[in-house]
Computed example of a mutant assay.
Amino acid sequence: MTSTAGGDNQVSERAQHFLKVLIERYIRDGQPVGSRTLSKETGLELSPATVRNVMADLEEMGLVSSPHISSGRVPTDLGYRLFIDSLLTVKRLAEQEVAAMRRQLNDLGDASTLIERASQLLSGVTRLAGVVMMPRHEHGAFRQIEFLSLSGGRVLAILVTSEGEVHNRVVNTDRSYLPAELEQAANCLNAMFTGQDLHAVRRRLVADMKTTREHMDRVMLQAVEMAQGVVEAAEGTDDCFIAGQTNLMEFNELASVERLKQLFDAFTEKSQILHLLDRCIAAEGVQIFVGEESGYQLLDDCSLVTAPYGSDDQVIGVLGVIGPTRMNYPRVIPLVDMTARLLTAALKQQ
Protein backbone atom coordinates (compact mmCIF):
# COMPACT_ATOMS: atom_id res chain seq x y z
CA MET A 1 0.00 0.00 0.00
CA THR A 2 1.06 3.57 -0.50
CA SER A 3 0.86 6.54 1.83
CA THR A 4 -0.32 10.06 1.12
CA ALA A 5 2.31 12.08 -0.69
CA GLY A 6 3.78 14.67 1.61
CA GLY A 7 1.81 13.37 4.59
CA ASP A 8 -1.43 14.72 6.02
CA ASN A 9 0.48 17.40 7.98
CA GLN A 10 0.47 19.51 4.79
CA VAL A 11 -3.33 19.45 4.63
CA SER A 12 -4.94 22.01 6.93
CA GLU A 13 -7.42 20.88 9.55
CA ARG A 14 -10.21 22.68 7.74
CA ALA A 15 -9.29 21.06 4.41
CA GLN A 16 -9.22 17.63 6.09
CA HIS A 17 -12.68 18.27 7.50
CA PHE A 18 -13.98 19.19 4.05
CA LEU A 19 -12.36 16.10 2.53
CA LYS A 20 -13.91 13.86 5.18
CA VAL A 21 -17.39 15.28 4.61
CA LEU A 22 -16.99 15.09 0.82
CA ILE A 23 -15.91 11.44 0.90
CA GLU A 24 -18.67 10.43 3.31
CA ARG A 25 -21.25 12.13 1.08
CA TYR A 26 -19.80 10.57 -2.09
CA ILE A 27 -19.75 7.10 -0.51
CA ARG A 28 -23.41 7.53 0.40
CA ASP A 29 -24.73 9.00 -2.88
CA GLY A 30 -22.18 8.17 -5.58
CA GLN A 31 -22.56 11.65 -7.09
CA PRO A 32 -19.97 14.46 -7.39
CA VAL A 33 -20.23 16.81 -4.41
CA GLY A 34 -20.62 20.53 -5.08
CA SER A 35 -19.41 23.48 -2.99
CA ARG A 36 -22.93 24.45 -1.91
CA THR A 37 -23.63 20.94 -0.58
CA LEU A 38 -20.30 20.90 1.25
CA SER A 39 -20.93 24.28 2.81
CA LYS A 40 -24.20 22.99 4.30
CA GLU A 41 -22.88 19.60 5.44
CA THR A 42 -19.69 20.82 7.09
CA GLY A 43 -21.65 23.05 9.43
CA LEU A 44 -19.10 25.85 9.04
CA GLU A 45 -20.08 29.49 8.49
CA LEU A 46 -17.94 30.08 5.41
CA SER A 47 -18.49 32.14 2.28
CA PRO A 48 -18.96 30.32 -1.06
CA ALA A 49 -15.64 31.79 -2.20
CA THR A 50 -13.82 30.31 0.81
CA VAL A 51 -15.35 26.90 0.19
CA ARG A 52 -14.29 27.03 -3.47
CA ASN A 53 -10.75 27.97 -2.43
CA VAL A 54 -10.52 25.01 -0.05
CA MET A 55 -11.79 22.69 -2.77
CA ALA A 56 -9.27 24.11 -5.24
CA ASP A 57 -6.50 23.43 -2.71
CA LEU A 58 -7.65 19.83 -2.28
CA GLU A 59 -7.73 19.41 -6.05
CA GLU A 60 -4.23 20.89 -6.43
CA MET A 61 -2.95 18.36 -3.84
CA GLY A 62 -4.46 15.53 -5.87
CA LEU A 63 -6.98 14.56 -3.19
CA VAL A 64 -10.12 15.31 -5.24
CA SER A 65 -10.88 15.76 -8.92
CA SER A 66 -13.61 17.19 -11.13
CA PRO A 67 -15.16 14.62 -13.47
CA HIS A 68 -16.62 17.38 -15.66
CA ILE A 69 -16.26 21.14 -16.00
CA SER A 70 -18.49 23.00 -13.49
CA SER A 71 -19.44 19.74 -11.76
CA GLY A 72 -18.75 18.84 -8.16
CA ARG A 73 -15.70 16.95 -6.94
CA VAL A 74 -15.05 13.27 -6.30
CA PRO A 75 -12.26 11.71 -4.21
CA THR A 76 -9.11 10.37 -5.85
CA ASP A 77 -7.26 7.24 -4.71
CA LEU A 78 -4.91 9.57 -2.82
CA GLY A 79 -7.88 11.25 -1.14
CA TYR A 80 -9.28 7.89 -0.05
CA ARG A 81 -5.85 6.93 1.30
CA LEU A 82 -5.69 10.06 3.48
CA PHE A 83 -9.27 9.44 4.62
CA ILE A 84 -8.49 5.83 5.58
CA ASP A 85 -5.17 6.59 7.27
CA SER A 86 -6.13 9.74 9.21
CA LEU A 87 -9.80 10.71 9.06
CA LEU A 88 -11.73 7.46 9.29
CA THR A 89 -14.01 6.73 12.25
CA VAL A 90 -14.56 2.95 12.35
CA LYS A 91 -18.04 1.95 13.45
CA ARG A 92 -18.31 -0.56 16.30
CA LEU A 93 -20.43 -3.57 15.44
CA ALA A 94 -23.51 -4.23 17.55
CA GLU A 95 -23.36 -7.33 19.76
CA GLN A 96 -26.48 -8.72 18.10
CA GLU A 97 -24.85 -8.45 14.67
CA VAL A 98 -21.69 -10.21 15.86
CA ALA A 99 -23.78 -12.97 17.41
CA ALA A 100 -25.67 -13.45 14.12
CA MET A 101 -22.37 -13.65 12.21
CA ARG A 102 -21.01 -16.18 14.72
CA ARG A 103 -24.05 -18.42 14.24
CA GLN A 104 -23.38 -18.60 10.51
CA LEU A 105 -19.91 -20.07 11.14
CA ASN A 106 -20.88 -22.57 13.85
CA ASP A 107 -21.02 -26.36 13.42
CA LEU A 108 -20.37 -26.44 9.69
CA GLY A 109 -18.15 -29.51 9.53
CA ASP A 110 -14.89 -29.42 7.58
CA ALA A 111 -12.60 -26.46 6.91
CA SER A 112 -13.60 -26.19 3.24
CA THR A 113 -17.24 -25.72 4.19
CA LEU A 114 -16.28 -23.06 6.75
CA ILE A 115 -14.19 -21.19 4.17
CA GLU A 116 -17.03 -21.19 1.64
CA ARG A 117 -19.55 -20.03 4.25
CA ALA A 118 -17.19 -17.23 5.35
CA SER A 119 -17.08 -15.86 1.78
CA GLN A 120 -20.89 -15.94 1.66
CA LEU A 121 -21.06 -14.24 5.06
CA LEU A 122 -18.74 -11.45 3.92
CA SER A 123 -20.70 -10.79 0.74
CA GLY A 124 -23.98 -10.82 2.67
CA VAL A 125 -23.03 -8.37 5.41
CA THR A 126 -21.07 -5.95 3.18
CA ARG A 127 -23.11 -6.23 -0.07
CA LEU A 128 -19.78 -6.55 -1.89
CA ALA A 129 -17.82 -9.53 -3.27
CA GLY A 130 -16.49 -11.70 -0.46
CA VAL A 131 -13.26 -13.65 -1.00
CA VAL A 132 -11.52 -16.19 1.26
CA MET A 133 -8.35 -18.02 0.27
CA MET A 134 -7.98 -21.70 1.11
CA PRO A 135 -5.69 -22.36 4.09
CA ARG A 136 -1.97 -22.65 3.50
CA HIS A 137 -0.33 -25.37 5.57
CA GLU A 138 3.31 -25.82 6.49
CA HIS A 139 5.28 -28.09 4.17
CA GLY A 140 8.82 -27.57 5.46
CA ALA A 141 11.52 -25.62 3.70
CA PHE A 142 12.96 -25.38 0.21
CA ARG A 143 15.85 -27.86 -0.17
CA GLN A 144 16.52 -28.15 -3.90
CA ILE A 145 14.97 -27.57 -7.31
CA GLU A 146 15.90 -29.15 -10.65
CA PHE A 147 14.65 -28.65 -14.20
CA LEU A 148 14.68 -31.46 -16.78
CA SER A 149 14.07 -30.83 -20.47
CA LEU A 150 11.30 -32.95 -22.03
CA SER A 151 10.11 -33.29 -25.62
CA GLY A 152 7.78 -30.78 -27.23
CA GLY A 153 9.15 -27.70 -25.48
CA ARG A 154 8.17 -28.98 -22.05
CA VAL A 155 10.18 -28.83 -18.82
CA LEU A 156 9.78 -30.96 -15.69
CA ALA A 157 10.29 -28.90 -12.50
CA ILE A 158 11.24 -31.03 -9.47
CA LEU A 159 11.17 -29.55 -5.97
CA VAL A 160 12.52 -31.36 -2.90
CA THR A 161 11.54 -30.01 0.54
CA SER A 162 13.33 -30.34 3.86
CA GLU A 163 10.79 -33.00 4.84
CA GLY A 164 11.96 -35.15 1.95
CA GLU A 165 8.78 -34.56 -0.07
CA VAL A 166 9.22 -34.46 -3.85
CA HIS A 167 6.87 -32.33 -5.97
CA ASN A 168 6.80 -32.41 -9.77
CA ARG A 169 5.23 -30.09 -12.29
CA VAL A 170 5.37 -30.24 -16.10
CA VAL A 171 5.45 -26.79 -17.71
CA ASN A 172 4.94 -25.89 -21.35
CA THR A 173 7.56 -23.35 -22.44
CA ASP A 174 7.71 -21.04 -25.44
CA ARG A 175 10.97 -22.62 -26.67
CA SER A 176 13.33 -25.51 -25.97
CA TYR A 177 16.06 -24.99 -23.36
CA LEU A 178 19.50 -26.57 -23.27
CA PRO A 179 20.32 -28.72 -20.21
CA ALA A 180 23.12 -26.29 -19.34
CA GLU A 181 20.67 -23.37 -19.32
CA LEU A 182 18.26 -25.20 -17.02
CA GLU A 183 21.08 -26.31 -14.72
CA GLN A 184 22.38 -22.75 -14.40
CA ALA A 185 18.88 -21.42 -13.60
CA ALA A 186 18.33 -24.17 -10.98
CA ASN A 187 21.71 -23.44 -9.37
CA CYS A 188 20.78 -19.77 -9.10
CA LEU A 189 17.41 -20.54 -7.46
CA ASN A 190 19.00 -23.06 -5.09
CA ALA A 191 21.57 -20.48 -4.01
CA MET A 192 18.77 -17.98 -3.33
CA PHE A 193 16.25 -20.21 -1.53
CA THR A 194 17.81 -23.35 -0.01
CA GLY A 195 16.75 -23.62 3.64
CA GLN A 196 14.02 -20.98 3.42
CA ASP A 197 10.40 -21.57 4.45
CA LEU A 198 8.17 -22.34 1.47
CA HIS A 199 5.81 -19.48 2.35
CA ALA A 200 8.74 -17.03 2.20
CA VAL A 201 9.96 -18.55 -1.08
CA ARG A 202 6.51 -18.22 -2.63
CA ARG A 203 6.19 -14.56 -1.58
CA ARG A 204 9.66 -13.79 -2.95
CA LEU A 205 8.92 -15.45 -6.28
CA VAL A 206 5.64 -13.52 -6.62
CA ALA A 207 7.45 -10.27 -5.80
CA ASP A 208 10.27 -11.00 -8.26
CA MET A 209 7.77 -11.70 -11.05
CA LYS A 210 6.13 -8.35 -10.39
CA THR A 211 9.05 -6.01 -9.68
CA THR A 212 12.19 -7.35 -11.36
CA ARG A 213 10.98 -9.23 -14.43
CA GLU A 214 12.22 -6.51 -16.79
CA HIS A 215 15.77 -7.07 -15.47
CA MET A 216 15.76 -10.90 -15.86
CA ASP A 217 17.03 -12.69 -18.90
CA ARG A 218 14.59 -14.98 -20.69
CA VAL A 219 15.85 -18.21 -19.14
CA MET A 220 15.73 -16.90 -15.58
CA LEU A 221 12.27 -15.42 -16.07
CA GLN A 222 10.99 -18.78 -17.28
CA ALA A 223 12.73 -20.52 -14.36
CA VAL A 224 11.09 -18.22 -11.81
CA GLU A 225 7.68 -18.91 -13.37
CA MET A 226 8.29 -22.67 -13.22
CA ALA A 227 9.57 -22.48 -9.64
CA GLN A 228 6.53 -20.48 -8.61
CA GLY A 229 4.25 -23.17 -10.03
CA VAL A 230 5.96 -26.10 -8.30
CA VAL A 231 6.15 -24.24 -4.96
CA GLU A 232 2.41 -23.56 -5.22
CA ALA A 233 1.88 -27.28 -5.81
CA ALA A 234 3.99 -28.08 -2.74
CA GLU A 235 1.95 -25.75 -0.57
CA GLY A 236 -1.33 -27.30 -1.63
CA THR A 237 -4.30 -26.31 -3.74
CA ASP A 238 -4.02 -22.68 -4.74
CA ASP A 239 -7.60 -21.51 -4.64
CA CYS A 240 -10.12 -19.21 -3.02
CA PHE A 241 -13.87 -18.98 -2.62
CA ILE A 242 -15.54 -15.87 -4.04
CA ALA A 243 -19.18 -15.00 -3.34
CA GLY A 244 -21.44 -12.07 -4.17
CA GLN A 245 -19.80 -10.94 -7.42
CA THR A 246 -23.20 -9.77 -8.70
CA ASN A 247 -23.37 -7.26 -5.82
CA LEU A 248 -20.92 -5.13 -7.81
CA MET A 249 -23.54 -4.61 -10.52
CA GLU A 250 -25.33 -2.24 -8.13
CA PHE A 251 -22.55 0.36 -8.40
CA ASN A 252 -22.76 2.62 -11.44
CA GLU A 253 -18.97 3.03 -11.77
CA LEU A 254 -18.57 -0.74 -12.21
CA ALA A 255 -21.81 -1.51 -14.03
CA SER A 256 -20.75 -1.21 -17.69
CA VAL A 257 -20.90 -4.51 -19.54
CA GLU A 258 -17.20 -4.41 -20.47
CA ARG A 259 -16.10 -3.46 -16.93
CA LEU A 260 -18.14 -6.25 -15.36
CA LYS A 261 -16.84 -8.77 -17.91
CA GLN A 262 -13.24 -7.88 -17.00
CA LEU A 263 -13.96 -8.15 -13.29
CA PHE A 264 -15.81 -11.45 -13.60
CA ASP A 265 -12.97 -12.83 -15.74
CA ALA A 266 -10.58 -11.91 -12.92
CA PHE A 267 -12.85 -13.62 -10.39
CA THR A 268 -12.96 -16.74 -12.56
CA GLU A 269 -9.22 -16.89 -13.28
CA LYS A 270 -8.35 -15.91 -9.66
CA SER A 271 -4.55 -15.69 -10.00
CA GLN A 272 -4.33 -11.90 -9.63
CA ILE A 273 -6.65 -11.92 -6.62
CA LEU A 274 -4.67 -14.78 -5.04
CA HIS A 275 -1.42 -12.88 -5.56
CA LEU A 276 -2.94 -9.87 -3.80
CA LEU A 277 -4.08 -12.02 -0.89
CA ASP A 278 -0.62 -13.58 -0.78
CA ARG A 279 0.87 -10.13 -0.19
CA CYS A 280 -1.33 -9.76 2.90
CA ILE A 281 -0.66 -13.13 4.53
CA ALA A 282 2.41 -11.91 6.42
CA ALA A 283 0.83 -8.60 7.46
CA GLU A 284 -0.84 -7.96 10.78
CA GLY A 285 -4.44 -6.82 10.97
CA VAL A 286 -6.56 -5.23 8.27
CA GLN A 287 -4.88 -4.25 4.99
CA ILE A 288 -6.47 -1.98 2.39
CA PHE A 289 -5.57 -1.54 -1.29
CA VAL A 290 -7.25 1.45 -2.92
CA GLY A 291 -7.54 1.58 -6.71
CA GLU A 292 -4.16 1.46 -8.41
CA GLU A 293 -2.42 0.43 -5.16
CA SER A 294 -3.25 -3.19 -6.02
CA GLY A 295 -0.92 -3.07 -9.01
CA TYR A 296 -3.51 -4.79 -11.21
CA GLN A 297 -5.20 -2.65 -13.88
CA LEU A 298 -8.40 -4.69 -13.72
CA LEU A 299 -8.86 -3.52 -10.11
CA ASP A 300 -8.05 0.18 -10.69
CA ASP A 301 -11.65 1.18 -9.88
CA CYS A 302 -11.88 -1.17 -6.89
CA SER A 303 -10.66 -1.44 -3.32
CA LEU A 304 -9.69 -4.62 -1.49
CA VAL A 305 -10.01 -4.83 2.31
CA THR A 306 -8.37 -7.92 3.85
CA ALA A 307 -7.59 -9.51 7.21
CA PRO A 308 -5.62 -12.69 8.04
CA TYR A 309 -7.19 -15.71 9.70
CA GLY A 310 -5.47 -18.62 11.42
CA SER A 311 -5.54 -21.84 13.35
CA ASP A 312 -3.39 -23.01 16.27
CA ASP A 313 -1.95 -19.48 16.66
CA GLN A 314 -0.63 -19.47 13.08
CA VAL A 315 -1.85 -17.40 10.13
CA ILE A 316 -2.92 -19.80 7.39
CA GLY A 317 -4.96 -17.59 5.06
CA VAL A 318 -6.49 -14.24 4.22
CA LEU A 319 -10.08 -13.15 3.64
CA GLY A 320 -11.59 -9.89 2.45
CA VAL A 321 -13.98 -8.02 0.22
CA ILE A 322 -13.68 -6.41 -3.20
CA GLY A 323 -15.83 -3.44 -4.10
CA PRO A 324 -15.72 0.03 -5.63
CA THR A 325 -13.28 2.57 -4.20
CA ARG A 326 -16.27 4.40 -2.73
CA MET A 327 -17.15 1.44 -0.50
CA ASN A 328 -18.35 2.21 3.03
CA TYR A 329 -14.96 1.81 4.76
CA PRO A 330 -16.16 2.70 8.29
CA ARG A 331 -18.52 -0.29 8.18
CA VAL A 332 -16.63 -2.67 5.90
CA ILE A 333 -13.35 -2.62 7.87
CA PRO A 334 -14.83 -3.90 11.18
CA LEU A 335 -16.94 -6.48 9.32
CA VAL A 336 -13.88 -7.93 7.58
CA ASP A 337 -11.89 -7.90 10.82
CA MET A 338 -14.67 -9.60 12.77
CA THR A 339 -15.22 -12.26 10.09
CA ALA A 340 -11.51 -13.13 10.26
CA ARG A 341 -11.71 -13.44 14.06
CA LEU A 342 -14.83 -15.59 13.91
CA LEU A 343 -13.37 -17.86 11.21
CA THR A 344 -10.19 -18.28 13.28
CA ALA A 345 -12.26 -19.24 16.33
CA ALA A 346 -14.37 -21.69 14.30
CA LEU A 347 -11.29 -23.40 12.84
CA LYS A 348 -9.75 -23.77 16.30
CA GLN A 349 -12.88 -25.56 17.51
CA GLN A 350 -12.55 -28.27 14.87
Score class of each variant (00 low, 15 high):
Arg25Gly: 01
Arg117Thr: 14
Leu88Glu: 08
Lys348Val: 07
Glu258Val: 10
Gln10Tyr: 08
Ala56Glu: 09
Ala233Pro: 00
Val64Gln: 02
Ser112Lys: 13
Ser3His: 11
Ala207His: 14
Val33Met: 05
Ala15Gln: 08
Met55Asn: 10
Leu38Tyr: 05
Arg127Ile: 03
Arg175Gly: 06
Val290Tyr: 05
Tyr309Leu: 09
Ile273Ala: 05
Lys261Arg: 15
Gln196Gly: 03
Gly43Ile: 07
Leu121Phe: 15
Gly152Glu: 09
Glu292Asp: 11
Tyr309Thr: 11
Gln184Ala: 15
Glu13His: 07
Val21Asn: 00
Tyr177Lys: 01
Ala100Ile: 04
Met209Tyr: 06
Val206Ala: 15
Ala49Thr: 14
Leu38Thr: 04
Phe142Asp: 02
Asp337Glu: 15
Pro308Arg: 06
Pro334Arg: 08
Ala283Asp: 12
Arg103Asn: 09
Ala100Cys: 03
Pro32Asp: 00
Glu59Trp: 05
Ser47Thr: 13
Arg213Lys: 07
Asn168Gln: 13
Arg81Ile: 04
Arg175Gln: 12
Tyr177Trp: 15
Thr173Asp: 02
Leu105Glu: 06
Glu95Tyr: 07
Arg102Thr: 10
His17Ala: 12
Gln144Ile: 01
Phe251Cys: 01
Ala345Cys: 11
Glu293Gln: 14
Tyr80Asn: 00
Asp174Val: 02
Phe147Arg: 07
Leu108Met: 12
Gly310Asp: 05
Asn168Trp: 04
Asn172Glu: 11
Asn9Gln: 15
Asp337Gly: 11
Phe18Lys: 02
Arg218Asp: 14
Ser65Met: 10
Arg117His: 12
Leu38Gln: 02
Leu82Ser: 01
Leu347Lys: 05
Pro75Asp: 03
Ser47Val: 05
Phe267Cys: 08
Arg204Thr: 14
Gln272Phe: 02
Ser70Ala: 13
